[in-house]
Amino acid sequence: MQDQHTIAADTAPGIGADELFGQSPDGLTSDQQARQQRMSILANAPAAELIRLWKTMKLDPGCELLRGPETGLVALRGRIGGGGAPFNFGEATVTRATVRMEDGAIGHAVMLGRNHGKAKLAAVIDALATDPAMEASIEQAILVPLKALVAERDKTRAAETQATRVNFFTMVRGDD
């Protein structure tokens, strides 16, 4: 599963899923799970590619900004020893936006970095995808290619990284 680090909802149950969500992922409705996946894909997407794919949809919907786009900080936490009690070890820039479309649909975006345009576009895409009539076309035109892009990058990285894996062979030693 190449994209297991990207797509939170793909996390195998039982492996820290409880820590991730504060509740079982099964506690989320299918709409919520879809939104969680969608927001994650959009957050992880390169901005240029997101804009390019959006343009292929040839949409120009009107929307109102309810909050943001605004940049702030998220405090990043690790765990002592890797698996123990949490500690703060730094911060990262994060940008979020919430929009309302003309039909009243709400969309959210929150992502690392400071790209206001990307956050607003991601929120618009999130809002549009809440419309069952639009969901499939957004999935095909934007989400599937973005997911594939990240998967492809991970695949290349893995192929390069695994080429540096050490294969030990034991030398014959001594005279006995």
Partner: peptide
């Protein structure tokens, strides 16, 4: 609430900065 209502998302400061 699991999802914030539309009412709550409206009415933030205009030109917040």
């Amino acid at each position: 609430s699991l999802e914030t209502s539309l009412e709550a998302m409206q009415g933030g400061l205009g030109e917040p900065v």
